[in-house]
Amino acid sequence: MSIRINKEKCVGCGRCIDACPGNLLELAEGKADIRIPEDCWGCTSCMKYCSQSALEYYLGADLGGRGAVMTIEKEKDIYNWKIHMPGGETKVISVNRKNANQY
C-alpha cells in the first residue's frame, strides 16, 4: 500500500509535503513525488491536503491490491472517497466529518 501522484493534476503547491508524517514527499520538477513508496504508512494525510485530488491511494499486490486506486474529493464537511476500479467503474463512499462513527 502506498500513494502515487497524478502528475497531470498536481499543481506543485507542496501542502502534502508538510503533511506527510514520514517526510516521504518532495517536489521534483515542480510536482509532488514520493521518495520511497514502500515507506508509506497509508494514513492518507497527504490526500486530505490536496485541493486537486491528485494523490491516489492503492494497495500493493501483497495486501490484495489488483489495480484499484482511491482518491478524496472534498465538499465542505463531506469527504467523498472515490474508489476507481481497474475496469473503469467508480464507487463513492461519502463520509460526513461532523458525524461520529457508529462503531
Binding site: Y57, L59, G64, A68, M70, K91, I93
Partner: peptide
C-alpha cells in the same frame, strides 16, 4: 482506509 479499499476492491 486500506481496510475499506480492500473490502471494496
Amino acid at each position: 482506509p486500506s481496510q475499506t479499499l480492500k473490502w471494496i476492491e
